[in-house]
Simulated scan of single mutants.
Amino acid sequence: MNYWLVKSEPSEYSWEDLSKNREDIWDGIRNFQARNYLKEMKCGDQVLFYHSGKTKEIVGVAEVSEEAFPDPKDNENKGWVAIKIKPKKALKNPIDLERIKSDDLLNTMPLIKQSRLSVMPIEKIQFDHIIKLSS
């Protein structure tokens, strides 16, 4: 199993939207590195859901429910892909960006080093630490 973080502006698509829908397509990714990460995601992989924009915090845990398939929004057939994710649980205490930056175990995450990347891998130890911090 692998661990990931996906980012979304809550005004575009929020954790609440995913929770309401119970499963949804994660599409519209137009960055080659993020696309390659989408292709690596497997069913059952755990995904941290991060709200970008004003709040800048990890708010929930989702799971990959369908592996990469052609992005239905790729009208020019450029090879973009999408996956499906489903919500598992909202974090009791969201973990904000300042806490991530100040934590020695988390401040090496791609979220800090590649802040514009919308899909990224994280290490299991970081995932577990975030879950522990949010309890």
Rank of each mutant, 00 (worst) to 15 (best):
M1T: 13
N2E: 14
W4G: 12
W4N: 08
V6P: 08
S8P: 13
E9K: 15
S11V: 10
S11R: 12
W15L: 04
W15S: 01
E16D: 14
L18F: 00
S19T: 03
S19E: 13
N21Y: 09
D24G: 15
I25P: 02
I25F: 04
W26H: 02
G28D: 03
I29W: 01
A34N: 06
A34I: 06
N36V: 09
Y37I: 14
Y37S: 04
Y37G: 02
L38S: 01
K39G: 01
K39W: 07
G44V: 02
Q46N: 14
V47E: 06
L48K: 10
Y50M: 01
H51R: 09
K54S: 06
T55C: 03
K56C: 00
E57A: 13
E57G: 02
V61S: 06
V61T: 02
V61K: 03
S65N: 05
S65F: 07
F69I: 03
D71V: 07
D71F: 07
N75H: 11
N75I: 05
K78H: 09
K78I: 08
W80T: 06
V81N: 11
V81E: 08
A82W: 10
K84L: 01
K84W: 08
K89F: 15
L91I: 07
N93V: 11
N93D: 11
R99H: 12
K101Y: 01
D104G: 04
D104N: 15
T108G: 12
T108I: 00
T108C: 07
M109R: 05
K113F: 10
K113C: 04
S115T: 12
R116H: 12
R116Y: 07
L117Y: 08
V119F: 03
V119N: 01
M120D: 01
P121H: 14
I122M: 08
K124R: 01
I125G: 04
Q126W: 04
H129K: 11
L133M: 14
S135W: 03
